[in-house]
Design a protein around this nucleic acid. Structure first.
Length: 878
RNA sequence: GGCCGAGUGGCGGAAUGGCAGACGCAGCGGACUUAAAAUCCGCUGGGGGGUAACCCCCGUGCGGGUUCGAGUCCCGCCUCGGCUACCA
């Protein structure tokens, strides 16, 4: 009568785990030898608690770590498995502006929903460690870490961050007095102020985040957006570029993520070269990765924002250049790159001298050169750079080839499209390495050698030097939003109430957001907090200086940069994390989350961690040892057979609550793990949920008696010795599932359990010891059902810490094996032989098989390849 | 354009260089049932031959190669997906 009823079992066990604090973990072991398996810190990327609740993508990674954790506990490990909330964020602020409800209120509601949903999935989180980035007790330490960054400068000598007090002050600065010293220090801090453009939307009266701007219009209301310079806080992540690059080496991360980070950091080596401007003392400095092509530099280009532009123009060119600059200023970086298949630009009116050829070359202004990379100016070598080639073609500038391609070089399709007649010969841009031509004394030098030689020559002549460049920019760390961590800083004001540019540190943390504050846009580009009550905003320092709070707030990334540290010791009131606790738990052993965080979050967190390490606050330089990206779950395949991303507009979003209601949490967990490899993108199929549900129901029937009026053991489950076959089957399953969990190959682990149950359920006698061990193996995947069965099998307490069943590997070995017999690589027969049969025995047995003999008949055997226990292959001729 | 990943039955997928398609879904046939649901049993890549047990051929995106043997390794393509993009 009692069928498998997830709706009865699951809430019972969830309440049981809660009441018994089953998964609460002591921060440090209470005695030696308490955890013979060592420690495991398994971390999920904590969610942003959005108003739409949990998505089926969330439980995918969460189930994976949960299985690993439950398995690890059974293996005697000290397991840390926490969950929390990345709760600052734009949607809450937007919602607040629209409805007038404080973000703290909506955030709390959303967190409650997420927590309820996660608890309903039976994850073994230690909920006593829950934190939200919006908790004052949390963000006081976010502010503290910010101050550590503010207090740190990067010493290139030692390659490490050091306290600002240790920054050597040049004598001439020192002699200028205390303020000069302060400003000098400020110029070296890892956190510094800088004017940077923001997206100002006059119609909405607010500054927008990049993701709120679409094609130069606001996402809400489609109003025009201007770019406006505003004082901002920046973090000097570029100082750590090499450290962040080198640190990737030792990490057990997907190569693809490492490649993404390397790419993002974008380190390149080349040279900086000075081109003297004709008729002036100044030089125009360019960065190039191809100094070997210097002889082919036939013109130069500066970015429209380049500071030298104003002085490069002549009376004839001024008007055209200024018009061009105005146009460029209107375009965002995105527009510039997107619409610009066609190269545009204007001649500046000036010339510079190629330092090697001595020839004057024209200097152009064009927006295909970006101010943000290198020096904002380039030497253009049209023959060997496709962009320069296109530009030279458009404006009829000379193209001089200086690299002879290797003999086997062929232009690619795109290069062929750029073909041009030069001196009666069809030519293509060539961007690879070759041999120098038209390069004076360097003719015949291979590209690699040439680079080294030319850098030496330029250095000797004082017109250039080797240089390293990064794509990585410093991190714009301030936002004009209300719902974020306040900066713990004060600005000094002058007599007129203007900022002096000098700041002071807030000594008393936390700095909470002002209470009773109207967070509606006030119509100026300054942050909303600029309208905060005066008692929050202003104060007078002991020395009489008038101070105003920093009113920018930190970006959402801030809280997620260090949450993994807080989880270790979440209630510590004296330190962001206890020293001993940090040493015990870090680094994170397994970090699972979406690939969308492959660069930013993971790079920012690494950066902070490196700084904390340099300053002696943490014991490892890298925070995350092993990283795994879960694949995206797509919607159910549509009529065209294709599956698309889940989205509200497509109406293919699956709500985990519905799945739990219809099939139970164990089915949802099992299905998400059974869909395919964790890292792969895969479509949702509700019929697949049905399938794993049937499997669980079958497990239920195999161990319990459905015909009885009450829940009780199936009469086939008896306290008897297992047969040899049963014993081998369960051992094989224990071994296979355990190995698969370690490989995170959950889909195959589940199929192994299915195979076992297919066999075991058909047995009319099911030894209790086998049923028990299977229950333990199932437990990490379907913990509610497993707990229920475990209790039915006569155990009083939770199986969460029950040892993972042992496997005597010698009992796994089968005495006979079936091996294929091939003739010329084709399988012609299958042979059951003793597992120990050697090459000769195999050959003899195979030859005596009728089918094999038929295929060997009349042919001569050239060779016999035999792999004992595996296969045998006859190579024949004739 | 660059980087990364993937192409295997009707579908999701499995396969240390050694029996391709485990496991599941869907489908077909059968048992149980007055009937249905649930459950249980069997079949299920394509083609061909045989009364039958069986036998043969083809088959992992395409073209080459290495190997006794390739879904797996190498070279060259094609297609799809993700990220990124005038980075000098």
């Amino acid at each position: 009568m009692p069928r498998y009823d997830a709706a009865r079992i699951e809430p019972f066990w969830q309440a049981h785990w809660d009441e018994h604090k089953t998964f609460e973990t002591p921060t440090l072991p209470e005695r030696d030898g308490e955890y013979p398996g060592g420690k495991l810190y398994a971390l999920d990327m904590f969610p942003y608690p959005s108003g739409s609740g949990l998505h089926v993508g969330h439980p995918e990674g969460y189930t994976a770590t949960d299985i690993v954790c439950r398995h690890a506990r059974m293996n005697g490990k000290h397991v840390l498995h926490p969950m929390g909330w990345d709760a600052f964020g734009l949607p809450a602020e937007q919602h607040a502006i629209k409805t007038g409800v404080h973000p703290r209120v909506t955030t709390k509601e959303n967190i409650d929903t997420f927590r309820r949903q996660l608890k309903a999935l039976g994850f073994s989180y230690d909920w006593s460690r829950e934190v939200a980035t919006t908790d004052v007790d949390y963000f006081r330490w976010t502010q503290w870490i910010f101050l550590e960054l503010y207090d740190t400068w990067f010493d290139p000598e030692s390659g490490r961050g050091r306290p600002i007090a240790e920054l050597p002050i040049p004598g001439e600065i020192e002699s200028e007095g205390a303020e000069a010293v302060r400003r000098y220090q400020d110029g070296h801090r890892l956190a510094y102020q800088h004017e940077a453009p923001v997206n100002w939307c006059p119609a909405l009266g607010t500054v927008l985040a990049n993701e709120e701007v679409i094609d130069g219009k606001s996402e809400r209301g489609n109003h025009p957006v201007e770019r406006l310079p505003l004082r901002q806080w920046m973090l000097r992540i570029t100082a750590y570029a090499d450290r962040l690059l080198d640190g990737l080496e030792g990490l057990d991360w997907p190569e693809s993520v490492k490649a993404l980070q390397r790419n993002w950091i974008g380190r390149s080596t080349g040279a900086e070269v000075d081109f003297k401007l004709v008729g002036r003392d100044e030089a125009l400095r360019v960065y190039t990765t191809r100094p070997d092509t210097l002889y082919g530099a036939t013109y130069m280009v500066v970015a429209p924002e380049h500071p030298l532009v104003d002085s490069l123009v002549t009376d004839e060119t001024r008007e055209a250049v200024e018009a061009y600059r105005r146009d460029a200023a209107f375009k965002s970086d995105l527009d510039r790159t997107e619409l610009s298949k066609e190269k545009t630009g204007v001649f500046s009116g000036s010339h510079a001298v190629n330092p090697l050829t001595g020839q004057p070359v024209p200097v152009w202004v064009a927006d295909y050169v970006l101010m943000g990379y290198g020096t904002g100016a380039i030497m253009a070598v049209p023959a060997h750079d496709t962009r320069d080639w296109e530009f030279a073609t458009a404006f009829d500038l000379p193209i001089v080839p200086v690299v002879d391609p290797p003999a086997n070089w062929k232009p690619s399709k795109d290069e062929q499209k750029l073909a041009r007649e030069i001196d009666g010969v069809t030519r293509y841009p060539f961007t690879g390495a070759g041999t120098a031509i038209n390069s004076g004394e360097f003719d015949g030098t291979p590209t690699g050698e040439f680079k080294i030689a030319v850098i030496k020559k330029l250095t000797d002549e004082g017109v250039g030097s080797e240089a390293v460049n990064y794509k990585l920019r410093d991190w714009l760390f301030s936002r004009q939003h209300f719902w974020g961590e306040p900066f713990p800083l004060w600005h000094e004001l002058d007599a007129d109430g203007n900022l002096t540019g000098l700041v002071r540190v807030e000594e008393s943390l936390p700095v909470d957001l002002p209470k009773d504050f109207d967070f509606k846009p006030h119509g100026r580009p300054e942050p909303p907090l600029d309208e905060a009550p005066a008692e929050w905003l202003y104060k007078t320092a002991d020395d009489g200086v008038r101070l105003k709070r920093e009113t920018n707030s930190m970006p959402q990334w801030a809280g997620s940069c260090w949450y993994y540290l807080r989880f270790v010791d979440p209630r510590n009131g004296d330190r962001f994390v206890g020293e001993e606790a940090e040493k015990h738990w870090l680094p994170v052993d397994l970090y699972i989350g979406g690939a969308e965080h492959a660069v930013l979050h993971l790079l920012y967190a690494r950066f902070w961690h490196h700084v904390l390490y340099d300053r002696g606050h943490v014991s490892t330089s890298e925070p995350f040892g092993k990283l795994v990206n879960q694949g995206m779950i797509l919607g159910e395949p549509e009529a065209d057979g294709r599956a698309y991303k889940m989205s509200k507009s497509r109406g293919n979003v699956v709500n985990p609550d519905d799945v739990v209601a219809d099939y139970g949490a164990d089915s949802l967990r099992l299905y998400e793990m059974f869909m395919g490899p964790l890292e792969q993108t895969k479509p949702w199929q509700m019929s697949g949920v049905e399938g794993v549900y049937r499997f669980l129901a079958r497990v239920w029937r195999t161990i319990t008696d459905e015909d009885a009026d009450e829940v009780r053991l199936n009469p086939a489950v008896r306290d008897v010795e297992p047969t040899e076959e049963q014993e081998r089957a369960i051992l094989k399953t224990i071994k296979g599932v355990g190995d698969d969990i370690e490989k995170l190959a959950f889909n195959t682990a589940i199929s192994k359990m299915m195979e076992f149950v297919n066999g075991f359920s058909a047995d009319s006698v099911r030894p209790k010891s086998v049923a028990e061990r299977f229950t333990l193996v199932l437990a990490p995947f379907a913990p509610h059902l497993a707990e229920e069965l475990w209790r039915l099998l006569g155990h009083q307490s939770s199986l969460a810490y029950e040892p993972w069943p042992e496997v005597d590997e010698s009992k796994l070995v089968e005495s006979t094996v079936e091996i294929p017999v091939q003739v010329n690589g084709k399988v012609r027969a299958k042979l059951t032989v003793a597992a120990a049969a050697d090459r000769d025995a195999l050959t003899e047995a195979a030859r005596s098989d009728a089918a094999v003999a038929r295929h060997l008949d009349g042919k001569s055997v050239v060779k016999v390849v035999a792999v004992p226990g595996r296969m045998i292959n006859f190579v024949v001729k004739g």
